[in-house]
Every structure is written in structure tokens, then in C-alpha cells.
Design a binder for these strands. Sequence first.
DNA 1: TTGCGTGCAAAGGTTTTGCATGGCA
DNA 2: TGCCATGCAAAACCTTTGCACGCAA
Lengths: 142, 142
Amino acid sequence: MTTKLKYKTKQHDELLAFLKETGGRHITVAEISEHFKTAGKPIGTATIYRHLEKMVDEGAVNKYTIDNNSSACFEYIGEKTHTGEVCFHYKCEVCGKLVHLHCEEFKELEKHLYEHHGFMLDPMRTVFYGVCSDCGEKRKTE
Amino acid sequence: MTTKLKYKTKQHDELLAFLKETGGRHITVAEISEHFKTAGKPIGTATIYRHLEKMVDEGAVNKYTIDNNSSACFEYIGEKTHTGEVCFHYKCEVCGKLVHLHCEEFKELEKHLYEHHGFMLDPMRTVFYGVCSDCGEKRKTE
DNA sequence: TTGCGTGCAAAGGTTTTGCATGGCA
DNA sequence: TGCCATGCAAAACCTTTGCACGCAA
């Protein structure tokens, strides 16, 4: 909640670099931990969690949970926006692809949510889940 | 997955009755447990989980996992399901409240996503993040 | 009677927290 | 030097599982 992490440390740099490398794919804390361990420069689990929490707060990383029992998945989405540009994402549940949407249509959605439900949508954090066109096609032919 | 619960027991009846009572609202296992404890007829946690799992399998109950750390939410939706009644959720990033929305507006969103982006939205898994009206008000006055 | 359901306690797994140490500025 | 970040281990948490007992059929 009150994570700051204002210093620039080696762990932070390497974590960020690795996340960018895996950008768009989903990854668990265990996998991140494993990666650095096998690379010969392990990073403590707590540290990974602390940095991820901060990045999620900033909107650079998205966190989602499938089950309460399995570990959470994180995905690197990118640097925080270019001011003003609204950016939504959708993620395909089949192939895992993460797609960015820049579309006026969603302004309507935001407006509706605010006017009818008093809810101020946070576009950076909201991800639509579903099945993308490619996977939808494949599914039909099977 | 392999839950059977084929016998008709007192616990099953009371659990079902309580779930129907709360129909449409979200509830956690802890709250269910608390309810029966204060009612003087406690039901074991394991039993609650076992029945909920079965009901989720059968489609009578929806299960939502928002965070890995907070407990899962369950929602009784009855036997009617599967034929319509789309249900979205939004989660307040400030107070953590989870609210569900039954609103025709979102059919438009679904349609748009499908027709313009070829994306078949999965309403059950999609959660809007943002700030709810209560927390929005509070924020203004601070 | 048979076999399933229940409840307790313990296990299993993920994430968070406390605290001493070491690093950044 | 003064904080802050790190890492370890322990704690906290939710959920599942093992097992003996009791209840449904």
C-alpha cells in the first residue's frame, strides 16, 4: 500500500529488464525467482513481490488471479502512458495474447459507468478477458 | 472435480437456504461460516468449501477470485442460468468493494468488441477497475 | 449395515511482515 | 552519514486433505 522503492538498485534494474523481455506474456513470482536463481544472481521473493506491487500501482504491470490456490500471474504492459491517450487491453484466454486498443468506443463505456454507476473507470488497470479472433476461428473448425 | 455429495444432509439444506437468501450478493466462506456460527449451528469450513465447489461445478454458484490474498467471493445465481443474464463486475481500488452490474449497456460493449475487434468477451472473467462513487466523494472532500 | 458426509486438525501453498544487514545517494 | 532496499525466516492467510466418527439410505 505504501511502497516507495525510490532508490535505483541493481535488483530493480534487472527485474525490470527481465519483465520487459517477457512483455505480453504472463509470469509468476516463482518463475521470476527461478530465472534469477538459475542466472546465478538470485533475488529474494519478498523483493520481487515489493517491486511488482509498486509496478502494478503504477500501471506498468498487470496482475491477475486465476485461482486462490495457484499463484498470481503478472504481465508487463509498458511504461505509463503518454498523457491523455486512453489505452485498454484485452487478453485472449486461449493463446494468452495481450492486445492494446485505442478506440473511441470505450469513452462511451467510461461515460456510462460514471454517469449511471458513479464509477470512475481506471483504463490502465482494466483488462477485458475473452477469446481473440484467431482462436475463435480455430475453435470453430475443431 | 470429484466431489459427489449425493446425500441430502442438514448442512446441505441450510447452506443452500442461506445462499438463496443472499442471492445476487457476494459472500465469502468466512462470512458464511460466521453466519452459521452466530446462528448457533456452526458448519465446518471444509464442508462449506466442499459444497460450494460442487455448486460451482453445477453452475448454481459463481466463484470470483479478485486477489490472491483476500478470500474468494461466491454468488448464488440459481438454477435459471446459462440462458442469458450477463453479469459484469467492478472493483473499487480504494475500498476493495466488489460490485456486480446487470446492465444492458454492456451488451453494446460486447457487440462492439466482437464486430470491430473480433473479440469474444468473457463477462464472467472481466473486472472493471476504478474508484466507486463512495470513495470518489470522500476523495473530493479530503 | 454400508458408505458417504462432517468436522477437526494438520498440511500445502502463496503472499506479507519484522528485523538486521548492506547499499544508494 | 542517513535512509532505504534487501533477504531471510517467520507469520498470516486461504484452501485442501486425512482421518475417525456419525448420519443417510
